[in-house]
Amino acid sequence: MLEICPMTLKEANAFVEQHHRHHKPVAGQKFSIGCTDGEKIVGVAIVGRPVSRYLDDGWTLEVNRLCTDGSHNACSMLYAAAWRATRAMGYHKLITYILDTESGTSLKAAGWKCVGQAGGLRWTGKRRPEVDLCPAQMKIKFEIDDGKRPPEGEENRNV
């Protein structure tokens, strides 16, 4: 039986380093959670501020990494737990992106909705990295929210 457990960023990044198919560990976070089978960690979720500065409104967080060893239901359990923790911290929306070749079944099982394609194949602009940090592939954006609007005058707390 799977259970959610607390994780440090160092622990979560070590799991990502060992198991993630196409991403490296992250630099920062708001929080990390793990999933255990009672004997070992079988998955982690790392949640932080949105990578896109346009979405960083102070009310939204992003699942920046979700990684499992393939254990059945671990992904959907982590996505659901990440949303519960996000809400408990007072945020109103949680977003994430998957590759367009991934199905999104775990996200759908956790109650998230697909909002369509996002971005392009690569980062663009002056600050783009010299080497791609993720596969040059289209992404699909998923989100979950509580349906509430931020208090009047606080639509964007990070401006």
Rank of each mutant, 00 (worst) to 15 (best):
I4Q: 11
I4A: 04
C5D: 07
T8P: 06
K10G: 10
K10Y: 13
K10Q: 15
E11R: 00
V16S: 03
E17K: 14
R21D: 08
R21F: 12
H22F: 10
H23F: 11
K24P: 11
P25L: 01
A27G: 07
A27Y: 11
K30F: 09
G38H: 01
E39D: 10
E39N: 14
I41T: 03
G43E: 02
G43A: 02
V47W: 02
G48I: 01
R49I: 03
P50R: 10
L55Q: 06
D56T: 04
D57I: 05
T60C: 05
T60F: 05
V63H: 03
R65I: 02
R65S: 02
C67D: 01
T68I: 02
D69R: 00
D69Q: 00
H72G: 11
H72C: 12
A74P: 00
S76L: 06
S76V: 03
L78W: 01
L78G: 04
A80S: 09
A81D: 06
A81F: 02
A82Y: 01
W83C: 04
A85G: 05
G90R: 06
G90S: 02
K93L: 00
L94V: 05
Y97R: 10
I98A: 03
E102I: 00
T105Y: 10
A109S: 12
G111M: 10
K113T: 14
K113C: 14
C114R: 08
Q117E: 13
Q117N: 13
G119K: 07
G120L: 06
L121Q: 11
R122K: 15
P129I: 08
V131G: 03
D132E: 08
C134M: 15
C134I: 15
M138E: 12
I140Q: 10
E143P: 07
I144A: 09
D145R: 15
D146Y: 11
P150C: 09
E152N: 01
N156C: 04
N156G: 07
N156P: 12
